[in-house]
Design a binder for these strands. Structure first.
Length: 439
RNA sequence: GUGGGUGUAGCUCAGUCGGUUAGAGCGCCUGACUGUGGAUCAGGAGGUCGAGGGUUCAAUUCCCUUCACUCACCCCA
């Protein structure tokens, strides 16, 4: 092979390699999410990365299927898709056992998802997403629980209460507003929703012009303005307080306040969300740092996705949290975890003659539960210490001929440069002591 | 899909108004130091200057195309 024929080392466009330091961060985030989910009694599941193409053709947005879905025909002539989202898989799995699963169903997962995007900040072709759902309950308490889990995760990741805010709305209030207050032609509601969704990002002039372009009157635009300015306080005076969604939203806020979560939440009528299948509560979490003002993740209540597969109606509420956006949040707020050394102790190898006894020493440490790496290639001791230093391993153990003859071992603490000689029998306790001091 | 910016060593970047053999810092390897790492010193490896084509006596430099990265849109969570 000539130079020009060498394969590229770059990962496929829009995907990432997770080197150990990246994997460490991903595991850090996911371990915290997992522990909070389990604390609330949720169970972990997973599904295949490949699904029947029809699963997405049925319900996911047209854009998603036409432009962004990875799909192919397999050797058995089946039309197969790589999952772009997890919700259809959850719905399918729940439907398959609809008769036997005790409800509510509390599940979570960490799927990798694929979309044929043009890669850009915060959007890649493959990303991992923490998905958590509660299915089989219509109660707003389920909505509350999902939001609580999200908040607990943020706090456990190290976020301050002032670092983030969950913006909450309810699709039913929005629908009531559009139909009964604004008396909008149903064909206009989708484009109007899209403009409302965008309002935070665009100027008031652009906002008004877009609504005029759609065909709204100035009076209607004023109505929309005052609707979007509603908060929890003045909501009760507005005509939408007649809607079913209003009562539900109130209950949700009451529940959150009861558990001390209300300071991290606020009513925001401009929250719409793109997916068609949301029917009730919708929410998005925002980073409050000026450097990273954007939605971190979102979710909401979707009624009857399970109905695609089953006669039975099962509603659910859930959220998806992407690894990319959460990592951005941690970085913005200086919350990235310190990389843990791969081993606590490195056992140096004096020379080839001491290989067997050195290997035995290393195994004594491992039996005691101490993470221990051992020198493989014999090399100059300076090189071995240098290696341990570059891997930030805090302790190096060495048994040369002198120590061997006396039944002792040399222990060196790298940070302080201190070293001492202990009896072989005291090795484990001496290491334990050192490592505890370190922490 | 649309528009802007950027591609030079593993990384961060200089440089070339077109002209011998393309540089620095950091990192890596070797040695000074055959029982000890963060310092110092010396040396070394590593580049078809993103790729292809064009203009020219001569292209890393100018032109075209293409690919990749990146930002903003579009779209979407």
């Amino acid at each position: 092979m000539t130079q020009s024929q060498k394969l590229t080392v770059k990962p496929y466009r829009g995907t990432r390699d997770f080197y150990p330091e990246h994997m460490y961060l991903r595991n850090h985030m996911f371990n915290i999410m997992r522990s909070v989910a389990e604390l609330y009694g949720y169970e972990e599941y997973d599904g295949p990365m490949l699904e029947n193409f029809d699963l997405y053709a049925a319900k996911s947005g047209e854009e998603l299927v036409k432009e962004q879905l990875y799909h192919f025909v397999d050797r058995g002539n089946r039309h197969v898709a790589i999952r772009p989202e997890m919700t259809p898989t959850v719905a399918r799995m729940v439907a398959a056992r609809i008769g036997e699963l005790p409800r509510p169903i509390r599940w979570f997962s960490f799927p990798n998802l694929w979309r044929y995007e043009k890669p850009q900040r915060g959007r890649l072709r493959e990303h991992w997403q923490f998905n958590i759902d509660i299915l089989g309950s219509d109660s707003v308490s389920a909505d509350q629980e999902i939001i609580e889990v999200a908040i607990k995760i943020m706090l456990k990741l190290g976020a301050d209460k002032k670092d983030f805010c969950i913006h909450i709305s309810d699709r039913r209030i929005l629908m009531y507003f559009l139909e009964s207050v604004l008396k909008l032609d149903p064909s206009l509601s989708a484009p109007v929703c899209r403009v409302i969704d965008k309002r935070a990002k665009i100027s008031a002039e652009d906002f008004n012009r877009m609504l005029i372009d759609i065909g709204l009157s100035n009076g209607q635009i004023d109505e929309i303005d005052s609707y979007l300015n509603l908060t929890g306080k003045n909501l009760s005076d507005h005509p939408v307080s007649q809607s079913e969604g209003y009562a539900e939203l109130n209950k949700l806020l009451e529940g959150l306040a009861n558990n001390g979560m209300d300071s991290m939440c606020k009513v925001d009528m401009s929250i719409v969300r793109g997916l068609d299948y949301y029917t009730g509560t919708v929410f998005e979490m925002y980073d409050l740092s000026p450097e990273n003002r954007r939605a971190l993740f979102g979710g909401g209540r979707y009624d009857n996705l399970v109905g695609l597969f089953s006669k039975e109606r099962v509603s659910g509420v859930g959220l998806g949290m992407g690894d990319v956006t959460v990592a951005d949040f941690l970085q913005t707020h200086n919350l990235l975890p310190k990389l843990n050394p791969a081993a606590s102790v490195h056992v140096a190898l004096f020379d080839e003659n001491s290989r067997l006894s050195t290997s035995h020493l290393a195994n004594i440490l491992r039996s005691a539960g101490i993470r221990t790496s051992m020198q493989i290639e014999s090399a100059r001791l300076g090189k071995q210490f240098k290696w341990a230093n570059s891997k930030q391993i805090p302790v190096v153990v060495l048994q040369g001929p002198d120590e061997k003859a006396q039944g002792t071992v040399l222990i060196k603490e790298m940070a302080s440069h201190n070293q001492r000689v202990v009896k072989e029998a005291d090795l484990v306790s001496a290491i334990h002591q050192l490592l505890n001091l370190d922490v």
